[in-house]
C-alpha cells in the first residue's frame, strides 16, 4: 500500500505561476479522475510529478510514501514507480519501441545494478533483461493491449496515428508496472473500439497495489473505468473533489458553474 501525496504545490514557468496550490493524495488501489478546462494546468501537474526539469516548484512538496521526490530526476522517479502516459507523446527518430523499452524495463525492474548504472554509457546490450524473455513478455502484452506486433520494431511514434500513440503509452505502462500512473488524456482521440481496449487495459492494471490519476475531458471513459474520486481542476488547483457524480455534473453543465461558484465563494478560492 503506497501513497502519493501532492501538498500545496505551486509551480511556475519563468515568472508565470501555473499551479497555485495543488493538494491531492493518491492511494494504491484507487482511481482518481481529474477533469478541468483547457489550459488549467493538468498536464503541468503531470509533468511536475514525473520530474520535468523545466518547471520550477516554488512551494509545496510531492511525497511518495512520505519521502519527497522533488530532488529526484525523472528517471529516478520512474524507478520508484511513477509513470506518466503523455498527452502528446513525442516521436523519436530511429529509436524503436522495443529498444528503449527494454532498457526502461531493465532499469525499472533492477536488471541494471548499481555498478552497471555508473557504467550506463557502456555497450548497448549489457545489463539488460534477456532479449528472449523481454520479447516474450512484450509480445504477450502487445496482444493483450491490441497493439500490432510490428510496433515493437517501429520507431517510437513515427507515423503512429493518434490512437496508436495512446495505446503504445498504455502498453508501456503495462510493461513498466508502476505504483502510480498518471494518464494524461489517454482517452482523447480514440475510436470506440480503441477506447474499449484502453479502458480494459487500465482495468486490468488497476490492481490493489497500483493507483491512477486519470486526466480526461470526457465522462465516457468513466463509463468503462470506474473512478473512486473525481476532482475538478481549475485555475491551477483542485477546486472540488467528489464521486463519479461530479463528472456527470460537468458533462451536463460545463465549467461555467465552477467559475460562478468560485466567484460566489461556494468552492474555496
Amino acid at each position: 500500500m503506497s501513497t502519493l501525496a501532492i501538498q500545496n504545490l505551486h509551480v511556475a514557468i519563468g515568472d508565470t505561476e501555473i499551479l497555485k496550490g495543488v493538494d491531492l493524495t493518491l492511494h494504491s488501489g484507487e482511481i482518481h479522475a481529474m477533469m478541468g478546462p483547457n489550459g488549467s494546468g493538468k498536464s503541468t501537474l503531470s509533468y511536475v510529478v514525473a520530474g520535468h526539469p523545466h518547471y520550477k516548484v516554488t512551494q509545496g512538496d510531492i511525497l511518495l510514501d512520505g519521502e519527497s521526490i522533488l530532488d529526484m530526476e525523472a528517471d529516478e522517479r520512474a524507478r520508484t514507480g511513477i509513470f506518466l502516459a503523455f498527452q502528446y507523446p513525442v516521436s523519436i527518430p530511429g529509436v524503436s519501441v522495443a529498444n528503449f523499452l527494454r532498457t526502461a524495463v531493465s532499469n525499472v525492474r533492477g536488471y541494471t545494478t548499481k555498478e552497471a548504472d555508473s557504467n550506463a554509457n557502456g555497450v548497448i546490450g549489457s545489463n539488460l533483461m534477456p532479449m528472449r524473455e523481454f520479447r516474450r513478455e512484450l509480445n504477450t502484452k502487445m496482444k493483450e493491449f491490441n497493439v500490432d506486433s510490428s510496433f515493437a520494431r517501429r520507431y517510437l511514434n513515427e507515423g503512429f496515428s493518434g490512437g496508436e500513440k495512446k495505446r503504445t503509452e498504455v502498453l508501456q505502462m503495462a510493461m513498466l508496472e508502476p505504483k502510480f500512473a498518471i494518464l494524461d488524456e489517454s482517452d482523447s482521440g480514440l475510436d470506440i473500439d480503441a477506447l474499449q481496449v484502453v479502458s480494459d487495459g487500465i482495468n486490468k492494471l488497476a490492481t490493489e497495489d497500483r493507483g491512477f490519476l486519470l486526466i480526461t475531458h470526457y465522462q465516457r471513459i468513466l463509463n468503462f473505468v470506474k473512478p473512486d474520486y473525481v476532482s475538478i481542476f481549475f485555475g491551477g488547483r483542485i477546486v472540488k473533489t467528489g464521486g463519479p457524480e461530479v463528472a456527470h455534473m460537468l458533462e451536463e453543465r460545463g465549467y461555467n458553474w465552477v467559475e460562478e461558484e468560485l466567484v460566489a465563494g461556494i468552492v474555496p478560492a
Binding site: A50, F100, T103, A120
Partner: peptide, 23 residues
C-alpha cells in the same frame, strides 16, 4: 525527458537519441 520518464538514465537517453539519429 520522455525517455527518462520511462526510466532511462540521462546518458542512456542521450545515447539512444544520438544512435536513433544515426539509425
Amino acid at each position: 525527458f520522455y525517455l527518462m520518464a520511462r526510466g532511462l538514465t540521462r546518458p542512456q537517453a542521450e545515447r539512444m537519441i544520438v544512435q536513433g539519429f544515426l539509425q
